[in-house]
Structures are given as C-alpha cells and as structure tokens.
Computed example of a mutant assay.
Amino acid sequence: MGSVLVALSVSVDGFITGRDPRAGHGLGDGGRLFDWYFDGDTPSAVFDGFSLSEPSRRVFDAAAARVGATLVGRHTYDDSGWGTGGTPHPTAPMVVVSHRPLPADHDRQTLVTTGIEDAVAEARAQAGDKDVALMGGGVATAALAAGLVDEVVLHQVPVLLGAGRRFFQELPEHVDLRLLEAVAAPGVTHLHYAVVR
C-alpha cells in the first residue's frame, strides 16, 4: 500500500490560490504559484506541456509517478472545472468527497459522500500499491485531523499573496513533521516532510 500525501504549491504566507478563487478560475487572481511548472527547459516525463527547471522536474516527476489516485474536495473540484470529466493527474482516477452529487457521471471520477475516512479508503483501493495525492486545503486539513496523512510536500513559492484560499485550516491539535528533503530550484523551494506519529 502506498502513502497518503499532500503536495501543493503554497505562498510563503500559506495561500494555495490568489485572491477570489471561483468556478472556472480556481487559482484566483494574481496567483503565481504554478509558474515554476512552465519556467524551465526540462519537459516533465509525466505531465505533457510542463517544462520545469531540472531540479523541479526531478522532484515533480518522482512524486507524480507515485500517484495512483487523487482525492479532492468539492471546492477544488468545482473551481478547477473537472465537471466535464477531467482529473488533475494524466493517468490516475479521482475521488471527490462531497455531500452534493457531481454534475455528471464520469468513468475516472468517484463520489464519496460519507466523509474523509471513507474517501481516503476508496482512494487507497483505487490507487493499489501507489500513493493517494490529496488536493485542496479542506481535504488536507480533514485528513490530517483524522491521522490519515503520511507525507506533506510544500512547493513553496517566494511570494506573499496576502489573500486567497489558505492551505491549512484550523487543526484540533498540532501535527509534527520531519523534514526528509529540501530542494532549492528557480522560483520555488520543494520541502518534503514525513508526518510524525
């Protein structure tokens, strides 16, 4: 069985979107958190169209190749426009945790309405021996609070956005992390942590 991990781009002040994230404009206004996907000259071996710096490509492709399923919350799902059947990963299916039905049935999307524990279990079943990647601050926080996250990867971009959607919401208690790797790259620092249990 693989790990459950959170891996998102984040500003230094803790935001994962720019101001006013909304349906069809999920990254908000003025966000620069994903420029590092396209600022380099080394193509990703996993995601078509991504051209990263060599250090970022090594980190990104190693993590992306491990993903067997993604798990997203409803805000991330709606804001990112996946209602047409897409998923955030080119090969991995997506599990959506929400109390509301999805706009349509798609063969690579599964809805779970019974909470984060059941959603993680479904994503693990779909991932097989690969990892489950969590996307969105609400899902990440709920899974951390439930003790279901093994790794946290912060792709920290050197910007203070001042507003947007925060990465982590309030947790019931602190969560200790152990740094596994720090990789400095143009426009981003990749910080890989293990959750200490």
Rank of each mutant, 00 (worst) to 15 (best):
V72A: 12
V46Y: 11
M1E: 15
V188R: 09
D131F: 08
E151S: 02
A69N: 11
R165T: 10
A64V: 06
G28V: 02
G68K: 09
D176M: 11
S80A: 15
G18N: 06
A133T: 04
G14M: 07
H99Q: 09
D29Q: 07
F50K: 00
G187K: 05
G83T: 01
V175I: 01
L161P: 14
D118R: 15
L148Y: 00
E122L: 13
S53G: 13
T113K: 05
G136S: 05
G136V: 04
T141W: 04
H192V: 12
P90S: 05
P101T: 02
A69C: 10
G2H: 11
D176H: 13
V196P: 08
T87R: 15
G2W: 09
G68E: 07
V97N: 11
V175R: 07
R108G: 06
G85T: 01
T84N: 12
G86I: 01
L191W: 01
H25Q: 14
H75V: 09
R32C: 13
R197S: 10
V152L: 07
D150I: 02
D131V: 06
A125I: 05
L154T: 03
D107V: 02
P93K: 04
D48L: 11
A69M: 10
L160D: 14
H89S: 04
P172T: 01
L5T: 10
V159F: 14
P103W: 06
A146E: 08
V46I: 14
T76S: 13
M1K: 13
A145Y: 01
P172V: 02
G137N: 09
L5G: 03
G28F: 03
V153Y: 09
A185S: 14
E170C: 05
H192L: 07
S9P: 11
R22N: 09
S9N: 10
F50S: 03
I116P: 05
A92F: 07
A69G: 03
V175S: 05
R22W: 08
D35M: 05
L8R: 08
D129G: 09
Q109Y: 00
A123S: 10
F34W: 14
L134K: 08
T42V: 13
G136M: 13
R108S: 01
L191H: 03
P88T: 03
A127K: 03
S98Q: 12
V195D: 10
G162M: 12
V96N: 12
Q169G: 14
W82L: 10
T110D: 09
R66A: 11
A92N: 05
D131K: 06
V97C: 15
A127E: 13
Q169C: 03
Y77T: 00
A119L: 07
T17Q: 00
R197C: 02
V97E: 15
A145D: 00
A140G: 09
R74K: 11
D39E: 15
R124T: 00
A140R: 01
T87I: 04
V10I: 12
A125T: 13
H75L: 15
